[in-house]
Nucleic acid binder design. Structure first.
Length: 530
RNA sequence: GCGCUCGUAGUUCAACGGAUAGAACACCAGAUUGCGGAUCUGGCGGUUGUGGGUUCGAUUCCCGCCGAGCGCGCCA
């Protein structure tokens, strides 16, 4: 692709000028006035304050440019602004890259960058003391798309979920249900809501211990959660039970003791690493009654993840778990693993409103909106696309009153309609454009669309680093926008000439491929008609 | 009190430290004797909470203040 040619030529230029190696950034320009691609390389070099003396960014830019010359793919290159170098590509060189999209098809955007490397992605892992609620439903599509992106880059991805099937909360839920079964109205119930009654009706086992009844309940809720996430198009390769993890807790604790990060206090064992930040945040890993905590199980879990040879471990957590993050990092570090390989994606809970009224959600109070209610109302495509539109750290609002209206305005339909239009054109033409002169594609709407299509592989690669997968929805919306505009100005079936028509058909094919690949990563359907 | 996250158009949100801060919804005015009008064009709308600092350049990085959400348990 042309961009790679520019990068290579820039590298050659700075090498022959004996400038220090630096990461060269070359982006497609926002404004046509700044050419097709531009680089801030000279500005970055000026910042380095070379020993050879002071040079302004423009000096650097001019020297680089004189070495760079005018390769045959270029119309011109020029220095602009404070020292940017802007590249104006010959149209025939630019549009030629379309061929690559068509050849790669479904593989356009994929790579083997991560081949042979294992990545583990954990998401949802909902507390099974109640149904999945709308506040934390965000983690599902988020983790799923992160896994999709990493998979498309060739990584061997394991999608996993931890089922918290033991512990104090399970006991408390069991006690609540037993009270319901026995109709002991005097008891102060820990958990509220219709689902508790339903569980009590299903279980009907009064003689068992709180723990046993609780276990039955969370197993039932687990099934329900899996059904719900399944309806969201989410699957897992590995389900880990907390009860299993706790069996290995003694060994993990022993290792931590050897590492000297454990201390005893009040009959309990605490993780107490010598860390400034964690000094006052010591955490119990073995209770005074000899039992373990969730944190202990999670240490075991992450120990296993590292020992499985994972190159990267991604944990998608609700932001209410943020306090968990430094402790977990400290623990894996103490166990001798590289904490930098452990990446956290913390998402803020969706705030639910009804008009201007904010709805507080609590499983204990039983007044929450379930993810399933919303999913059933808006449909899986709109549900996923809406939740995936915004950066995970955004505190987003979700107004239930406007829900239906919002769903009909959801840009997912705008994007899907573009795909249906593309398909519609292609089914109406039988011509296989074998000999295509791409240089006939010179309309601004054609060029704009082409340039956007060609940035797709870069975007996917970038997402593997920053995990900000909401950029895919932005990308899809922009692609649809550019296509709708092209559609308005450039007739395909009624193109002025036959060669031009062949070029446009190819462009529509490339656009359809790219949009379908984007939607595929998002787990949103790409309909042929709507 | 301490910590994490956030504050951008009327609203919901974008913007690897880059050039004139962008979309959508809402509102106003237009477009189709064409491939699907779930479309397109134009307009309205901003002191990026606030005050400093770093930088050639700050919505972005650092510090203070104001405001919002969350966390700080021998819960998960």
């Amino acid at each position: 692709m042309v961009k790679n040619l520019i990068l290579a030529d820039l590298k050659k230029a700075i090498e022959s000028l004996r400038y220090p190696k630096t990461d060269i950034v070359c982006n497609s320009s926002k404004n046509p006035q700044f050419g097709d691609y531009s680089t801030n390389l000279a500005l970055q070099l000026a910042k380095l304050k070379l020993p050879s003396g002071k040079q302004s960014p423009k000096d650097f830019a001019n020297k680089i440019l004189s070495k760079f010359g005018t390769p045959d793919y270029l119309d011109k290159a020029e220095v602009a602004g404070e020292g940017f170098i802007n590249f104006f590509i010959k149209i025939e060189s630019l549009v030629k890259d379309l061929q690559e999209v068509l050849e790669k098809g479904e593989d356009f955007g994929k790579s083997n960058f991560g081949k042979g490397k294992k990545i583990r992605v954990e998401y949802v892992s909902a507390n099974p003391t109640g149904p999945l609620h709308m506040g934390n439903a965000r983690g599902g599509p988020l983790g799923d798309v992160i896994a999709n992106v990493l998979e498309s880059l060739g990584y061997e991805v394991l999608r996993e979920y931890i089922h918290n099937d033991v512990g104090e909360q399970v006991k408390a839920l069991g006690a609540t249900i037993k009270a319901k079964i026995g109709d002991k109205v005097g008891k102060d119930f820990q958990y509220q809501g219709e689902y508790v009654n339903e569980l009590a009706n299903k279980i009907r086992a009064e003689g068992e211990s709180d723990e046993e009844v609780g276990k039955m309940a969370v197993d039932l809720l687990y099934e329900e959660i899996m059904t719900d996430v399944g309806a969201m198009g989410i699957k897992f390769d590995l389900i880990v039970k907390e009860s299993e993890l706790r069996k290995d807790a003694p060994q993990a604790i022993e290792q931590l003791q050897e590492a000297g990060v454990v201390k005893e206090k009040g009959g309990a064992l605490w993780l107490a690493p010598n860390d400034e930040f964690l000094k006052d945040r010591e955490t119990v890993i073995r209770k005074s009654d000899g039992g373990f905590t969730y944190f202990t199980a999670d240490i075991v879990y992450h120990k296993q993840k590292f020992e499985s040879g994972a190159e990267v471990i991604v944990d998608v957590f609700g932001a209410n778990h943020h306090g968990h993050v430094p402790r977990l990092q400290a623990a894996v570090s103490a166990l001798g693993f590289d904490p930098d390989k452990l990446k956290f994606v913390l998402y803020q809970y969706v705030r639910i409103k009804r008009g201007t009224e904010v709805i507080k959600m609590s499983k204990r109070a039983g007044n929450y909106i379930t993810a399933r209610e919303v999913l059933d109302e808006v449909g899986v495509d709109a549900f996923r696309f809406y939740l995936l539109r915004f950066a995970p750290q955004t505190h987003m609002d979700f107004d239930l009153e406007l829900l239906k209206e919002q769903s009909s305005h959801n840009p997912v339909y705008y994007v899907q309609y573009a795909h249906a239009r593309m398909n519609n054109i292609l089914v109406k033409t039988k011509k296989e454009p074998d000999e295509v002169d791409y240089s006939l594609l010179a309309d601004p709407t054609e060029i704009g669309l082409i340039k956007h299509l060609l940035t797709f592989p870069d975007l996917v690669a970038e997402l593997a680093n920053n995990l900000q997968v909401h950029q895919l929805t932005e990308y899809a919306i922009t692609l649809a926008d550019l296509f709708h505009r092209f559609y308005e100005y450039c007739p395909v079936l009624a193109a002025e000439t036959e060669p031009l028509q062949r070029g446009r058909i190819s462009l529509v094919q490339a656009a359809k491929i790219t949009l379908a690949n984007t939607l595929n990563l998002l787990g949103v359907s790409a309909p042929e008609r709507m």
